[in-house]
């Protein structure tokens, strides 16, 4: 391994890591939003929307991200919707992640005893107020491990962004290998940067999990 090569590649990977993190964060944020809406719609069994959400969850979880990206990147322009590769990446991640996040939220919502909901109702809270102030805070604390696993999974899935010509970490590594045959250095930096991104997320998650556990659950 050539230190000089590592040093010269470093800034390229830095830029690529920035893109991976930014698009990953945007995609995950949207995925959480989509997941929460789907989970809420299914929790209250709102007719029609509930079935749509179930269909969506199955489709998003049972198709590979690469295929979803191809659909968005090559498919949508055919029906007149043109988007940038970045928007494609974020949309793809949100589509895939939404299904996973919905399931994570669902497991948490189901873990909250239904008498808690009735107790909130009996105090005059509306469905939305009960969900927001009583059920969701408890559900999220149950869902945190699953949500965290999803975040890490989705961040790793961003490696297929390179397929829609986004210059992320994977793209950069493949590019450098293709151009200069510097396989060892490129792969080393690739692994290094993924670890740099994912390890803190993982540690942060463990910390949040522990804090929430202590925050006073269990009667």
């Amino acid at each position: 391994m050539d230190i000089q090569v590592l040093r010269s590649y470093f800034p390229l990977f830095q830029t690529a890591a920035g893109l991976t993190v930014r698009l990953g964060a945007e995609g995950i944020f949207l995925a959480l939003l989509v997941g929460l809406i789907c989970a809420a719609v299914r929790y209250w069994k709102i007719p029609v929307f509930c079935q749509i959400a179930s269909c969506y969850i199955e489709i998003s979880r049972n198709t590979p991200l690469l295929i979803q990206l191809f659909f968005i990147y090559y498919g949508l322009p055919k029906v007149g919707i043109r988007t940038s590769p970045e928007i494609c990446g974020v949309a793809g991640l949100a589509f895939l992640g939404g299904g996973y996040m919905a399931e994570a939220f669902r497991s948490g919502l189901e873990a909250v005893d239904s008498v808690q909901k009735e107790s909130a109702f009996s105090l005059g809270l509306s469905k939305n107020q009960a969900l927001l102030h009583v059920i969701l805070p408890q559900a999220v604390s149950v869902s945190i491990p699953a949500i965290l696993a999803n975040v890490i999974f989705l961040l790793k899935e961003t490696s297929v962004f390179s397929a829609v010509s986004l210059m992320d970490l994977m793209f950069t590594a493949k590019d450098l290998i293709g151009l200069y045959y510097s396989t060892t250095e490129s792969l080393f930096l690739l692994v290094f940067f993924y670890l740099m991104i994912l390890l803190p997320v993982s540690l942060l998650g463990t910390w949040v999990e522990r804090r929430l556990r202590y925050a006073g659950f269990g009667t």
Partner: peptide
């Protein structure tokens, strides 16, 4: 219903305080 339930207080066997 929410308006009406404000006029009716209910206490449950299992207390149902909000643990968080």
């Amino acid at each position: 219903l929410p308006k009406l339930r404000q006029q009716i207080g209910m206490v449950f066997q299992s207390y149902e305080l909000f643990p968080h």
